[in-house]
Amino acid sequence: MTYYTVSFYLFAAIILLSAYFVVTTKNVIYAAFNLLLTFFGVAGFYALLGADFIAIVQLIVYVGGILILLLFGVMLTNKITDTEIKTGAFQVLPASIIVGMFSGVLIASMTNNRWIVSANTPVAADTLRTIGNILMNQYILIFEVLGVLLLIALIGAASIARK
């Protein structure tokens, strides 16, 4: 076992356990903080895959942004932890059929797909420069459209908040 495999299984365990707790816990705050661990584990996966930029962006956007906003919402809502959260089982049969079908698709695609296994492919030395070049040359239109989309969302949010 190399250190790589050890850390891979460590991050995998973190993701699985914390995701399980996010779904099952009845305390909203615990769910939120377990989500933090899940995001953290995913960032670790990215880092292991050599995608350091994606890992850092994962931390900045999800942990530093979305999760904090989520916690803000939970903490500023009056007595959210006292409300009864229904986690009982509803519609067991249709749900299990859909989940079974979906997991079947996932497993089929996982086993049938020819994964590109290339452990010794050198990771780009300067990921930031590479990503920047790709974004600004190859995908410049998509990048700009996304920027405009985000700007529209921002303006929309501001105008709604002003009403």
């Binding site: 903080f33 942990v63 990921t127």
Partner: peptide
């Protein structure tokens, strides 16, 4: 790290989570 500065900005967000 090649992205040292960005990494520092990212991990500081753990402090925010800890403070909350």
């Amino acid at each position: 790290l090649d992205l040292g500065l960005l990494y520092i900005v990212a991990v500081t967000s753990l402090v925010v989570a800890g403070i909350l």
